[in-house]
Design a protein around this nucleic acid. Sequence first.
RNA 1: AGGCGCGUAGCUCAGUGGUAGAGCGCUACCUUGACACGGUAGAGGUCAGGGGUUCGAUACCCCUCGUGCCUACCA
Length: 952
Amino acid sequence: MDEQLKSKAYDPKAIEEKWYSFWLENDCFKPSEDTSSPVFSIVIPPPNVTGSLHMGHALNATLQDILARYKRMRGYRVLWLPGTDHAGIATQNVVEKQLALENLNRHILGRDAFIERVWMWKKQYGGHIIHQLKKLGASCDWSRERFTLDEGLSRAVREVFVSLFEEGLIYRSQRLINWCPRCFTALSDLEVEHEEIQGKLTYMRYPFEDSSSFIVVATTRPETMLGDTAVAINPKDGRYVSHIGKMIKLPLTGRTIPVIADQQVDPAFGTGAVKVTPSHDFNDEAIAKRQNPVLPFISVIGQDGKMNINAGRRYTGLDRYECRKLVVADLKDKNLIEKEESHKHSIGHCYRCKTVIEPLSTVQWYVKVDTLASNAINVVKNEQVRIIPDGWKNNYFAWMQDIKDWCISRQIWWGHQIPAWYCPDCTLEGGTSQGENIYVALTHKINGIREGRYKELASCGISHKEIISNAKNIRVGTSVRPITGMVDPTVCPTCGSVNLLRDQDVLDTWFSSALWPFSTLGWPDHTDDLKAFYPTSVLVTGFDILFFWVARMVMMGIKFMKDVPFRDVYIHALIRDEKGQKMSKSKGNVIDPLLMIDKYGADAFRFSLAAFAAQGRDIRFSEERVEGYRYFINKLWNASRYIRISIDKYSTRQIETIEDIMSEFEGVDSVSLKLPERWVLSRLAQAAGNTSKGLEEYRFNDAASAIYQFIWHELCDWYIEFSKTSFEQEASDGKNQKLALKCLLYVFGHALKLLHPFMPFITEELWGMYCQTCKTISKTNFPDQLIVDIEAEDRIQYVIDCISGIRSIRGELNISPSKPLNAMIRTSSHAANSNLTKNYDYIKNLARLETLEISDVIEKPRGAAASVKTGMEIYIPLSGLFNVKTELERLEKELKKTNEAINQTNKKLLNEDFVINAPKTVVEKEKERYEEYIAKRDKIMTNINNMKELET
RNA sequence: AGGCGCGUAGCUCAGUGGUAGAGCGCUACCUUGACACGGUAGAGGUCAGGGGUUCGAUACCCCUCGUGCCUACCA
């Protein structure tokens, strides 16, 4: 006797690892060699290499795995390509934290040594999330695993960069950007999270130069007043128009600044007068640039978030927030604070470290996105890319139409260093040397100088080589021409100088992620994989990266592959905790998927995620439901035990393999089958159809519930119970065909296949129990084109109604299930009579009857409980332990229900408009219902009267 | 401020222009030969509120309330 027959409970731990290794060893996850098959390909949205699996990943991977496994069983050539991205800022942060523990920092190490160090870290910890995906059962082709900093992917990045630059779609520009003073880098607009906070609005008095009076401005950032270069008012604002052009003596600084006019100023907000700090506020930058001449830009805050020398000696070196306090205090001393009021406003935070971002004016690299974006809009409009559910289309369009140029340079070291070089020896049009516009800060003093223009350093006798190897920071003005190319240049193509400096910045990680759908397949080479698997079939992802990836992948795909990167985009929900809160480390409400797998098994966890994944809604994770699906697996396990026990009991021959039995059974003519067998085959067909339909339409929850419903409430609740009778009948009928046993195996085998994409482990385990030599269930065909048998469904449904009627009487009168009953059924139609008679044994056994009489001439016995159904009346004589009062109550309740139904139906039928306007079929149906209920009511009333006689 | 979504059983959620559903929980009875991680039978819902369209609305439209998210340059 083997393990299953002994164990009444399923233990996932024992088998999951075994089967995962088995699949790997047998190359089950690699695309088939058969190039004539249709192709289905998915690239995984690469998780951060620093990451560990969270619920979002688990859901994402589970859905992809379900699709991949399903399509494999459908005969597709499936590629699911895994990998991770290098997560520039996040990874660098992690390693820098490590260094800090050793009292080191990246500048001490130097760039090369630092990068070496990050690679070491990646080698040691980077496989973490991949390992977790395997625990989940993900059927990725691990032989094709990629990383955004791979040699091949880096070549793709370079190719794209150079090509976009040469086309003028990549350029450098000095403007305000979002700067994270902690990560010390620029961020794109998307990487800034806005959060509403309760702040203060400070009203400050700015006196006019002539001290005649003052103008009051309101601000949330008093410290920036040190960099103000104007006060703006709306040109239509009568209160202030006369002030336009007047000069203000800016407090604390001694500078004078003008009052200017600008349309954007809202007279209704604050005082209607706005201080303008072009260097530290995006609005103010725009106002400054609209003025003629342009307002001066005075930067008072440095990259470290501290005030710089321009802020004045008193404030230099203070943190922005310290300085704010001091400025307000100083103004108060001078009686220049009018008031402070509390004020709600939203401010930007770094998405990696949550530090408040600082707008700073710097030179950065940008991608010009307008034409790329409009193409990306078109392919969604004309459905070359489908977004599912399509509610997200609007968000996509809205974002795309409003898109601004993408800042792609980051001031960090971990990533793809920008392939651009500068020549300090070339001469600009005006005759000045480019070296005048390259500013170098050295790590230490050389020849008495620590920082300065390249030309200055060179003239102090510092060699080019020394400059490069000791540079801490190199800033290059926008007037300096970048040199780029697929090969690192060694000489300047213009002047022949060999003194080239490489751009220090790296590219945004998302820049390489945007190429993922084709760079992972080998582009820019024309590989077989690229030909076979691009465009990919579907991208499965959460909406939070719709813009980060989907949009950018579409742009890059169209641009470089001349085709969209994927046909479908399936956007799944975000997983929240039971209270609907977003899971986050800081809230401490994170549920670790691996914990769930440990506790309930990967199958139960996966199935829960699929069942949760209704379209267009967030998911509140509920552990209780996971537990519920573990029970479901246990149910399946025990159904299998029943089957194996039955085989032992009824099969005289050697056990055949499940594959043989299933194919043999396929040849059986349904005419030779009894109704329960025909019924379960039909229900299987329906379940298979619904499961496929759900998966094809990305309605994972529908697919999951179709298979759940079938296995538990049809196969187990009814067919297995019917089969007990069928087996006995076949054992005694002398033919020894064992059709029912084969049918059960056939249906069970198909059910396992239907379930396999959701629950790969248990289904493989059970499948294997019926055949040591068969191929893995993952390589069988998904059930398809099974036959629906409506007649069998209707007839068995009638039998089920009959059995339920008897069970109701038992249940409601509180009669023990073990007490055998005698039942009489009076039928009122030939069809009913013949149907029930044919299924006599099934009714008798499933309703636990001692005797059963079916006839159309039955006289209702005295003292019997009754149940009235369409076409039949069921009587259970209960002399002795019969409680008249209880039975009366039961009948009264039934009568009430029936009367309500009659009223409802009657109301409709009396409504002429309904009869005239409603479709004929609906009216007919309603009439039938009415008749049925009337007949039922009459019978119930008769029974009630009988009962009352008995009572007296 | 705009845009999007959600409000259905005690809880978590499906769903549909024509009889309101699931899982968990609850009640009663049952160690019946696959399964107590189980079986059988029950209880429980003005489908947020108000208006409109319709023969008929939980579903379609409008408004209100509640709630969540995204976008925005009100200093």
